[in-house]
Amino acid sequence: MKLLKKLPSLVLLFSALLFLAEGPGGTAEKNPQSVQVTIRTILAGNKVDEFDAKLKGMEQQLKSLKYRSYRSLKDDSKVVPWQGTQSFDIPGGRTLTVTPQEFQDNRIAVKVRLTEGEKPVVDTTVKIPNKGNFILGGPPHEGGVLVLSISAAAQ
């Protein structure tokens, strides 16, 4: 009975703790320990009309590139520590290397390098919104072009 009377206070305390932990500016986001980097490799082409169902969540983004077909080749996701480097294999003998650098204003700065074998193709530093993505595309592959979706989420 006493516990029942205390219940609103307990709920308030629990909610307040939950809010502090998970709300805007919650602990996890103020001091993220690492970054989950996800690379989606897509083959875009103009030979046929096709849209891979696996890419449903990215339909709007991809169709803006105005290709006729989009096919998912691989998805790769890894947790990378700050200032740590992680490499992802990209079709065509290529490698994508990602280094999360800093977290500020809910944006993650990542350094990205695409190489073909040993040869650098592009080096770029991009500030991605937390849990957002950007597209790196254009390298030729199997009659079409590769489209890489690079996303990052603070952990």
Binding site: R107, A109, K119, P120, V121, V122, D123, T124, T125, V126, K127, I128, P129, G132, N133, F134
Partner: peptide
């Protein structure tokens, strides 16, 4: 707010 800002780029 999905716009990513490109801080630097070197396409070699």
């Amino acid at each position: 707010d999905n716009f990513a800002s490109v801080e630097s780029i070197d396409a070699h």
